[in-house]
Nucleic acid binder design. Structure first.
Lengths: 101, 101
DNA sequence: AAACACTATCGTTTATTGGCGATATACAAT
DNA sequence: ATTGTATATCGCCAATAAACGATAGTGTTT
């Protein structure tokens, strides 16, 4: 019964899907994405005005979303313009679509 | 963590979507659901044979999935037959579908 | 060079998650 | 009533996540 965690062999799509799902697993991140989607792009500062949470916290959420590839940030000094990463967004859409049948 | 999550007014759909996403945010749970889907239903014991993780851990994952409503367990003594909760599954499908446009 | 605006990162704290073995519970069959 | 089987729960631990304020970049403008 001594099972090592590294013995688990997941399907690739399961790992990818879980990663996207995990990133979507917080209401603030969902609403950040909704906001991004509604106006194609926006700056961190806009979000700080919209959500009653600290700037550093928002930055962390953005980092999470960027890490998993759902958004991308382009320099627009001194601001950073965040947009949805359409290619990966589509990839996620297909994964969820296929999974949820 | 000075701010409770309840203090932020999220859209209802954001909270629901995030809850589903969070439940899907682990590869083991994804594969459990795939397994359930592929054969409509199954017992905890079947999963213990399939995944190299402890029985208690699988039970925990099932609990998570049940909590969010994606699966349901019906007594089939002495076993418990787990099935996908089709109604909520459809609800999740619509939420993700709508969100990912 | 200094001041400013914007964002990221650091350090800390607390909560949650994921894993395990051990134990408890529930029911069937003996 | 005892045994056996299947599943859930408990207690524990390590790792990760979420939140904050403070601080450190980064690039513009004065």
């Amino acid at each position: 019964m001594n099972r090592a965690i590294e013995d688990i062999k997941y399907e690739n799509s399961s790992v990818e899907l879980a990663a996207y799902a995990k990133a979507l697993g917080h209401p603030t991140r969902i609403e950040i994405l909704k906001h991004l989607d509604s106006q194609s792009c926006c700056f961190t500062g806009d979000l700080v005005d919209v959500f009653p949470i600290a700037q550093s916290t928002i930055s962390q959420h953005l980092k999470e979303l960027k890490k998993v590839g759902l958004i991308q940030g382009e320099l627009n000094p001194p601001k950073i313009r965040y947009c949805i990463h359409r290619e990966n967004w589509e990839k996620a859409r297909l994964l969820f679509n296929n999974f949820l049948k």
